[in-house]
Design a protein around this nucleic acid. Sequence first.
DNA 1: GATGAATGAGCGTTCATTCAT
DNA 2: TATGAATGAACGCTCATTCAT
Lengths: 209, 209, 209, 209
Amino acid sequence: MTDLKKMTRAEQKARRPVQILDAAFEEFVERGYVATRVEDIASRVGVTKGTVYVYFENKEQLFEAMIRHISGPLENLLASANELKGTATERLQQNIDLIYDLIIRDRKLRELMRFVIAEGTRFPQIVDRHHDIFIDPLERQMQSLIDEGVKLGEFRQAPAAFCDAVVAPAIAFLFFKLLFDERRTLDKASYVKAHIDLVLHGLVERHPG
Amino acid sequence: MTDLKKMTRAEQKARRPVQILDAAFEEFVERGYVATRVEDIASRVGVTKGTVYVYFENKEQLFEAMIRHISGPLENLLASANELKGTATERLQQNIDLIYDLIIRDRKLRELMRFVIAEGTRFPQIVDRHHDIFIDPLERQMQSLIDEGVKLGEFRQAPAAFCDAVVAPAIAFLFFKLLFDERRTLDKASYVKAHIDLVLHGLVERHPG
Amino acid sequence: MTDLKKMTRAEQKARRPVQILDAAFEEFVERGYVATRVEDIASRVGVTKGTVYVYFENKEQLFEAMIRHISGPLENLLASANELKGTATERLQQNIDLIYDLIIRDRKLRELMRFVIAEGTRFPQIVDRHHDIFIDPLERQMQSLIDEGVKLGEFRQAPAAFCDAVVAPAIAFLFFKLLFDERRTLDKASYVKAHIDLVLHGLVERHPG
Amino acid sequence: MTDLKKMTRAEQKARRPVQILDAAFEEFVERGYVATRVEDIASRVGVTKGTVYVYFENKEQLFEAMIRHISGPLENLLASANELKGTATERLQQNIDLIYDLIIRDRKLRELMRFVIAEGTRFPQIVDRHHDIFIDPLERQMQSLIDEGVKLGEFRQAPAAFCDAVVAPAIAFLFFKLLFDERRTLDKASYVKAHIDLVLHGLVERHPG
DNA sequence: GATGAATGAGCGTTCATTCAT
DNA sequence: TATGAATGAACGCTCATTCAT
């Protein structure tokens, strides 16, 4: 029992940095880098100012650590997409679905985007990082899906940058959610449906023959 | 010559507020609301701190005035699109082209988006304002273009929210430009081409007959 | 008619300094020297800041001029007391009455006292001035009245500083009025009656024989 | 010795608020509320600006706390007067003596009066507070002394508000001390003597028989 | 490790004062 | 004489950071 308690206490301590990073995330999201007070982060964890400085050099490095903390788990974000089965069309649909799920489920992913835009000037690394771990994989994956579809004869030969256009509605959706989430409701289902429908069929009437 | 000087003097005075608003725009873009110093705005204009307070109550109202200043001209942004000629397809293409031109030409439009994301919590009005003067008109216009195309038999009947998906790549483009503009190059031409191609034809191979 | 108007206009201008001094009095009373803004004084007159500086070197000298302006008329404050008729006792009573009338009627006299207390450290001259034009004459006059009464056999021989004690209730009344006027009501009639009664008879029961 | 040091350290901390309040008193007395700089209060204690804000919300609340700090001890000011012995006349004399002692000894009491006059508009509470803890008790006590004297047949039946007049010279003395203390000398002994003499005997010659 | 008192640089804001018109 | 735009010194207040405990 003593062991258990010690363990727990030790664990508690081991968790401190993570607790602080989580608290930092919430505060930085709410107020932005400059307006966030180290003290508010601390009291969210239930410790005092000084404690934050035990674990982090300063506010700047705390912010950067927080960015790494929330963006680390994103690295394998799209892993599940590799296991999709079915025709290229089916996999494309499923993949788009997965992306929306991800966007809706993962608040950290969304807020990371806010940081990129709001603090990108102050912390240029996060701009690149975000591109490398999210935007780029997203497009690569979509591109390879398209390529497969073309190879399989399901998709027509698409022009360069086509995958950008294919992915774009999801990215726009992410921004809408970021922007208007708490002020307007977004109908995910019909948005996704429209997206997939557009991607698959375009707008022009097909004239048989 | 006396006239010129008098003009210049009087004009100088009349221009002060606008000068300050322009300077404020640049500083707020660069550093965000909180980190921007009123003094820096002033010295960008070539005056001292106190002068800013001759024209604006405080930093907050200066920011809000700046938002109004840059978003006012946006109100007729999409007016030119109403004069498009040709088939629905042609007009759709031209309209998309116009949107990209706008996005590329109008830095203030782009940076407004940054403010919406970065300062939306602090200044909730700008979130709604931006939706009302940009997002909403954009979608309405696209929707009516689509409706016409459907009526003319050029476009197929599209599901609800389709216009969101049609517009989305342009919005994503805006964000990319905002995010990566100075760090990566975006190939506008091929992006637009892909966008239009997607919208018109979708991705699925058309099987004749 | 032109003359009249010109006169009037000229008079207006001649009055400017006085207008400003009157306005200054009100503002300084309301907020004290430091917290009063020159601009508020100006707008009370209906002119702008700069105009005040046409007539007065700076805020400090404006304040001093204002003090002179309101305390000048006080110099003959007690003149009327010299014309009192009747027995010493009657004149003493009348004099005390006059003092209370003065205190109640002359707001400037009262507020001058506030300046002396509130700004005496900043403007030491007004302390002396106030003593010289108000406190001192008040006591001298009372002393000479007492002396006459003694000489006439109406008053008993009083100890030194007796006149201080005789005058004191009126001075205390002034302070009460200054302090509590707008928050409590002071019953002047009974206060004066008690004052005169005290001065004439004291408190000890007189045992005949 | 370790104890001493520990004590000193801990005590130092506990004393900070009081040190600051005492320093604030001196500064506010010297310059008035508006002209006093928080930094001057701080350096009087030997700390920096920021430290003051560790203990007090802002300048306004510091001032109010200072008023409470100096006026709290005044609440039992007149307690000792309740233990006076002797005839009513003797007790009246002793009480008057006590009041002057109080006025002369207690600088804070005197300066509180200055705050009431100088800052009463800005801080209306202190006007009432001062009335409640000083003026009112003073008069009540004097009134009950007079009532006893009357009952005992030592004093004659006095008109209403008589106690005001009886107390007034002491209050006027307080103001004189406040006003002229450092510029003129007040002869307390003869002032008190005259006061008591006036109160007991009045001015009118007593005609035997 | 944790605390929180203390620091001090920094910024928003005010306002007396000046001066060109 | 009157204006009011502009100045700049000053001050209230905040907060990241330090350090003795």
